[in-house]
Design a protein around this nucleic acid. Structure first.
Length: 570
RNA sequence: GCGCCCGUAGCUCAGUUGGAUAGAGCAACUGACUUCUAAUCAGUAGGCCGCGGGUUCAAAUCCUGCCGGGCGUACCA
């Protein structure tokens, strides 16, 4: 809504510039698209434009003079929007918005309610967001937890601005990794049954969760599987392992509040012959050649430094093939855009993936790939825990939630985790300081935001206790708002739809996290400075109730998009 | 070597299409509860925005060269 205002002001300033040129106050210049700069301080008005600064060179006049000329030609009386125009600093044109605008902001928020901030910008375009997609070879760790929080919020954001976005999880339930899983379980199984001298195979999984898994198999059926031959047993354990570990992953994600719309299976993809189709397409288009007993893809045709193997000399596909097939499958399912959130260990894969998509002719910007950077956990002793599934050293999302639940209220454990994951930009490494999250639970930023919402709710409860009724708001009532705290709040509220749009379009949910935190801060400041329910001044009470209602709505909307609860009391 | 990411206050990090005096939180210090919730607020202190060049009226932001850190660079996924 601030952007609509900006467009109107653009028109007003353009008219003023034209008028200034007509009257000879300004030399004839071609005006570029009128820029705006964010106003950081209230003395810079509500909206500011550095247009005079950029015109200075072509107009060959000082920016200050240009700004004065433009400002003097702004038709204040014809605008319901602008209250005052000032020239400041080196030549900024600062614009102060009218009380009518204040009224419009509050009214719009009240009428839109839970839909405030939503738009149809995406025009119903179908978007598929693939995230987490952890191999079904172990529990969900906190790196995947970060991706889960980011992906989930991103889909919320996309849907809020009018896309039709869905959440998808690609299960790598075929290929070498799951063979290693079967072999690793087999080792644990035989160890538990007393066989010595066994070692987890290369590329296998060392985590103790496989010991537990093997134990549960023994609990159920004893040493029964020792009767069958090795390869068969490993295959049984592979399938059993996938099934159980996937179930654990699903349970963890549900607990974390992330619900995937589609679970895609690599195994099913292979059984449907999709990888073979891809190979056929690549071969027809001349991207493949044979060397050293393997089949290679001409990655160098796409500017890469070397080609890569797609069919190994043992006849197996490398993971590229089903992966490329999977992306073609996404396209065939009708998604106009695919967004992949990948972990930091897949970084080298990004370019390859894009080249495969290019080779399939799916369009340049059809696929977006984002790397969600690494998470390091700082434990209570200040030790940095490195995440690596294969070394068996990892910290699971479940244990994170468990620890948070122990330290803070149960109902907020997931909120805290999600908030921490959504605080940082995706490209930054994230140090999840558990020590801080746990021991200083009360100063936790997520509570700061939630508390602001709870306070809003509390005011309305008190309103009812005192038997105060909310009246319909009219334009005149906005005249009663003129304190700086309220005006700053309103200006910030008006920016919300733009923040939602930017967060969605730039795929950066953390912008919204920062926004709600700032909004909470502004509200806490307002709350301490002003009393809302004032029996001696019903006009003021009414307009402030309106404001508190707007803050409550926007906090709740923002937190909801982030997947964080907005408690009514704390 | 090549590629990607990062470098901003003691620590962890924001910083929008380049805009006015670079911001938060934590840690430190000083104050504010007879009040709609003090899980709060107000204030103090803390900065060659890694370094050097360039573009611009204007650079934390764009370009370039260094320095430092993380990750990736398989006939693994």
């Amino acid at each position: 809504m601030i952007s609509e205002v900006r467009n109107q002001i653009k028109g007003i300033l353009q008219d003023a510039i034209n008028a200034a040129i007509q009257s000879g106050d300004l030399p004839h210049v071609n005006t570029p698209d009128i820029p705006f700069s964010p106003t950081k301080a209230p003395e810079h008005g509500d909206i500011a434009s550095p247009i005079a600064l950029s015109l200075a060179k072509t107009a060959k006049t000082s920016p200050r003079k240009i700004a004065d000329a433009i400002a003097s030609h702004v038709q204040l009386e014809e605008s319901f929007l602008i209250r005052k125009v000032e020239v400041a600093g080196p030549g900024f044109i600062n614009i102060y918005l009218s009380k009518l605008w204040v009224y419009n902001v509050l009214k719009t928020i009240k009428e839109a309610g839970a839909n405030f901030g939503h738009s149809n910008h995406g025009e119903g375009i179908r978007v598929q967001v693939e995230f987490v997609s952890a191999n079904p070879t172990g529990p969900i760790n906190i790196v995947s937890g970060r991706a889960a929080a980011v992906g989930d919020a991103l889909v919320n954001l996309l849907n809020a601005v009018g896309y039709e976005a869905i959440r998808e999880y690609y299960v790598n339930d075929a290929g070498g990794q799951v063979e290693n899983l079967g072999a690793s379980i087999d080792v644990r199984y035989r160890e538990l049954l007393g066989q010595g001298g066994l070692e987890i195979p290369d590329g296998g999984y060392h985590g103790t969760y496989l010991v537990n898994l093997a134990q549960s198999i023994i609990d159920e059926s004893g040493a029964e599987y020792l009767q069958i031959d090795d390869t068969e047993r490993i295959a049984v354990f592979r399938d059993l392992g996938i099934e159980r570990l996937l179930a654990v992953q699903k349970a963890t994600l549900e607990r974390f509040g992330v619900h995937f719309d589609i679970w895609s299976s690599e195994k099913a993809l292979r059984e449907n012959g999709k990888p073979g189709e891809i190979i056929k397409v690549f071969r027809e288009r001349g991207y493949l050649y044979e060397a050293d007993g393997a089949t290679w893809f001409r990655m160098t045709d796409f500017g890469d430094s070397k080609d890569c193997v797609v069919i190994k000399s043992d006849g197996e596909y490398t993971y590229f093939v089903p992966d490329a097939a999977y992306h073609r499958d996404k396209f065939e399912r009708g998604f106009v855009k695919a967004i992949d959130l990948l972990g930091p260990d897949h970084q080298g894969h990004v370019e390859h993936l894009k080249h495969f998509v290019e080779a399939l002719g799916l369009g340049d910007d059809w696929l977006e790939v984002w790397i969600i950077q690494q998470v390091n956990l700082i434990d209570a002793e200040g030790n940095r825990i490195e995440m690596s599934k294969r070394s068996g050293q990892f910290y699971t999302l479940d244990s994170l939630i468990d620890e948070l639940a122990e330290a803070v209220d149960d109902r907020f454990a997931v909120d805290v985790a999600r908030y921490f994951f959504l605080m940082r930009s995706n490209t930054s490494h994230l140090d999840f300081d558990l020590h801080l999250a746990v021991t200083q639970a009360n100063e936790n930023p997520v509570f700061y935001v939630q508390y602001a919402h709870a306070r809003c709710c509390s005011i309305f409860r008190e309103m009812e206790n005192q038997g105060i009724a909310q009246t319909e708001m009219d334009e005149g009532i906005a005249e009663h708002i003129d304190d700086p705290e309220s005006l700053r709040l309103i200006r910030h509220l008006a920016e919300y739809p733009e923040v939602v749009l930017n967060s969605a379009e730039k795929r950066e949910p953390h912008r919204l996290t920062h926004y709600v935190f700032e909004l909470a801060g502004l509200f806490h400041g307002f709350y301490n400075e002003h009393r809302v329910l004032d029996p001696s001044n019903s006009h003021l009470t009414q307009v402030r109730l309106m404001l508190v209602g707007a803050v409550q709505t926007v906090l709740r909307n923002g937190l909801t998009l982030l997947g964080i609860s907005a408690p009514k009391s704390m």
